[in-house]
Design a protein around this nucleic acid. Structure first.
Lengths: 240, 240
DNA sequence: ACTTACTTTCGTACAGTGTACGAATATGGT
DNA sequence: ACCATATTCGTACACTGTACGAAAGTAAGT
């Protein structure tokens, strides 16, 4: 080789065209792996919240130094994207026996909410310009395929999914705050007694969130149904 | 005097029963004020985003030291709450000439979105366990009063507002990300060509957000209308 | 003017963050 | 043994919120 000077080896992630390449399977349980790092980060976020996720804490969880992680993950932002994508591996599509597009979307909304409740930090991540990865894209593609079987053209399907996605994300992002122990409204202000309706607002906030979610979701689905139903193509029961 | 040792004076904010007390009017333009601090923080967040808001940067903007701010604001969390509440001062109620509850809520949703677009960091703040202050409470009380005039009982009004609030917040939180220059989906993954429907999803994301917002909002309002209309009391045109 | 009480400002310090840089070590092929 | 490469680590820098105590400014009483 002509260059006798020892080239500094490029870190592995620099060889990848993007964050999402080369998710190799390396099952050594002791060594560092991208998967192990992401899993530790997810576990940490589930336990102590997104703000508690730091490179140093993840590293100490894995009994490695902070900088060692940077050989498997180019930056914290990429790590967060990987965490986001990892949550989509447990995302379940509507089962094949659902009756129509409305039931599919109902299932999609609830499954999204369940996933977000398991990992509340995801709704925060989504508001911090993430880049969605292959697992998410796969799920989305599959859902769009399901819906198109029920006679929805892609344009409509996309609009429906988008609206529901935004709604569910907004709901879950705020729901655990409403449910938290911190008072949502300044109690000093409410104590003046000048705001009786808001006071009742707060009492009703104690409604089970599942119930509020189902009601609002049905409002949305009802509105969609009455708007869309004229434009449905006949479902693809034919040979294809 | 028995205690010759000079007592350390308690800082002013310690004398207040909460963050929201004693928003006094001190119009000296050079001296520090809670209002000036909050205004500087809001301006900074508007310009460079919520992540760029730091005590030291605000202080340097006001040509003061970092610690000087802590005499007017107990902590950064309280400062963020004050910023949040400040945005409600520009929030406009539905004008008195709107026809019915649906139009009122339509106006409310659009006004919320306009406000959130002026201050995109608010949707982030809302997901970080804030405490809503007097301006917000005032607005909410007034809106509830407006709605009750159209024959909505408070229980229903609260459910409607809650659902719309969550939807609008979710929409705006994600809309500026969709609109950003960063690719939302990994282009490396899409380049495989395995996900044609998602590819179309992205193209359609270029739809003007106002249009998507109005459509989804109407879905929600339509669903609400068909659900609620049976339970309307006659509007209060009587003496009161 | 001088003292005293109090308010407001500031400097320093500490623990934490992401990560750039270069040195140290481990690993595997010849 | 040698050496190219892969992996790990220690140190350092700029930044964060804020605890603590000293300093400076201000107003009232004598």
């Amino acid at each position: 080789m002509s260059t006798a000077a020892p080239r500094r080896p490029k870190p592995r992630h620099a060889d990848r065209s993007s964050t999402w390449d080369g998710i190799s399977v390396d099952n050594a349980n002791n060594g560092l792996t991208r998967e192990r790092i992401v899993a530790a980060a997810v576990a940490l976020a589930d336990k102590d919240g997104l703000a508690a996720v730091s490179i140093r804490k993840i590293a100490s969880e894995l009994e490695a130094s902070a900088m060692a992680l940077y050989h498997y993950v180019p930056s914290k932002r990429d790590l967060l994207n990987l965490m986001l994508d990892a949550t989509y591996t447990e995302f379940e599509l509507p089962p094949p026996d659902v009756a129509d597009w409305r039931a599919s979307l109902h299932h999609f909304a609830w499954e999204s909410r369940r996933s977000l409740q398991r990992h509340p930090w995801v709704s925060l991540l989504r508001a911090n310009d993430p880049e969605y990865g292959p697992q998410c894209i796969r799920s989305l593609e599959a859902l769009l395929t399901r819906l198109s079987r029920f006679g929805l053209d892609i344009r409509n399907a996309i609009h429906l999914i988008g609206a529901l996605f935004v709604f569910v994300n907004g709901f879950v992002a705020l729901e655990d705050i409403y449910q938290g122990e911190q008072p949502l409204f300044s109690e000093a202000v409410l104590a003046t007694g000048n705001f009786p309706k808001v006071a009742r607002f707060i009492q009703m906030g104690a409604e089970p969130p599942d119930q509020a979610f189902e009601r609002a979701l049905n409002w949305m689905l009802d509105g969609m149904a009455s708007d869309i139903k004229h434009q449905l193509r006949p479902p693809k029961n034919r040979i294809r």
